[in-house]
Simulated assay, not measured.
Amino acid sequence: MTNGFFADKNRPLVLGHRGVPLAHQENTLAGFRKAIELGVDGIELDVFKTRDDRIVVFHDEQTERLTGVAGSIAEMTWDEVSQLRIQRRIDRGDGTVVEYPSEERIPLLEEVLDECGDSLLINIEMKAYAPNWSRRHTGTEVARVIKASGKQDNVISTSFDFFMLRKLEKALPGIHSGFAYDGGMLEGMGDWLDTLLNALPELDTELSRRAGNQNALNLLNLLLEANAIGRFVHSTVVDAEHTLIDSDTVQKFHQRNMLVGAYTLFPLDTRYVDNPDVDHEQEAHRLAALGVDWIETDDPERLLALLALLT
């Protein structure tokens, strides 16, 4: 069978970012069921490995924002995690509070694949804020869960951690996976790099049309398109913040027989948005015209309607 992400299509696939967060709490079965109800192509979800090697669907390293209980999810056991509940009132991360119909529990990845894996395409993001050798076996355990589910043709896996991706590929050869790129990922490299890039004359590129010195963005675009990390982890897909994608990015990856995903349109949490002034309707049109293979969004119903007008 052909993996569903690679099937022929006349528009980008629409993936609900963490489900359908306008209707239900992020990364919950209720949100994933809503995606099925809306006819969304798929979902993006986040996973962590617990202390006892279970793969749970959850976004934050710390549990307090979503559950009201302090803790580090990677240091907890599944028994401890299973007793938590995602609150009805949630701070989206930027101080905006939203209220949902009911509390929700934290699911295991295997539960999501069992219930939704035949109805939705799923991008499993192995959550990482930086590469961490000690957490590399998250990839091993995610591979185990995918293999046991029999849903390999409906999933891909992405991560900001190439150690996890290497272990995933080793444990499950043939899985479609890839490195993820974020517009702010150079910020952890130190002030010296930021100072250097801003001191140099700004490169004249498509990405330089925005106000201010965009050399950091230009460097990230160069790293993205060079695909050095992708070659290292045997990537077949790449996931990139939409602001990093210029007019030839998709073409370069398609020439390598790789897919390109973009995130996140119509975002609800705007803390880390690289360009807050972008018109997301126009951006949806731009990305579709460039031929991106999927787009992740916090408002999948709206994006589906927009893309329907283009086909």
Rank of each mutant, 00 (worst) to 15 (best):
G150Q: 02
G212W: 00
V97K: 12
E283S: 04
D191V: 08
G139M: 05
N27S: 12
N132T: 15
D91M: 09
A262T: 03
L307K: 09
E37S: 15
P173M: 09
Q255K: 15
T77R: 06
M185R: 10
A228G: 00
V20H: 09
K49P: 02
A288C: 12
T195N: 08
P21W: 02
D182M: 04
G19Y: 15
K147L: 15
D53Y: 02
G71P: 15
N10R: 13
A240I: 02
T140P: 00
L66D: 12
Q255L: 12
N257D: 15
A228E: 13
Q251Y: 00
S235L: 06
H59G: 06
L265E: 11
F32P: 01
V112R: 03
A216S: 13
E75H: 14
P173F: 06
A74V: 08
A130Q: 09
K34D: 06
M185G: 12
P107I: 00
Q62I: 05
I175M: 06
R92A: 03
L197G: 03
Q255F: 05
L268W: 06
F5P: 13
L244N: 03
C116R: 01
D299Q: 14
D279C: 08
I86N: 10
A211C: 00
L223C: 14
D299S: 15
L22M: 12
P173Y: 06
R85D: 11
R65G: 02
T63Y: 05
A289E: 14
V98W: 09
A143Q: 02
Q255T: 11
E99A: 09
A148G: 02
K49F: 00
L259S: 04
K167Q: 13
N154P: 04
A240G: 11
A128F: 05
E206F: 01
G19A: 11
A74P: 00
M185P: 13
L219R: 04
Q62H: 13
N275G: 03
G39I: 00
T264Y: 02
T2P: 09
P300H: 10
F232Y: 11
L15N: 06
K167L: 08
R33F: 10
R136G: 03
C116M: 10
I245H: 01
K252P: 01
F160I: 12
G4M: 01
N215S: 04
L66H: 10
A128C: 14
R144L: 01
G261D: 08
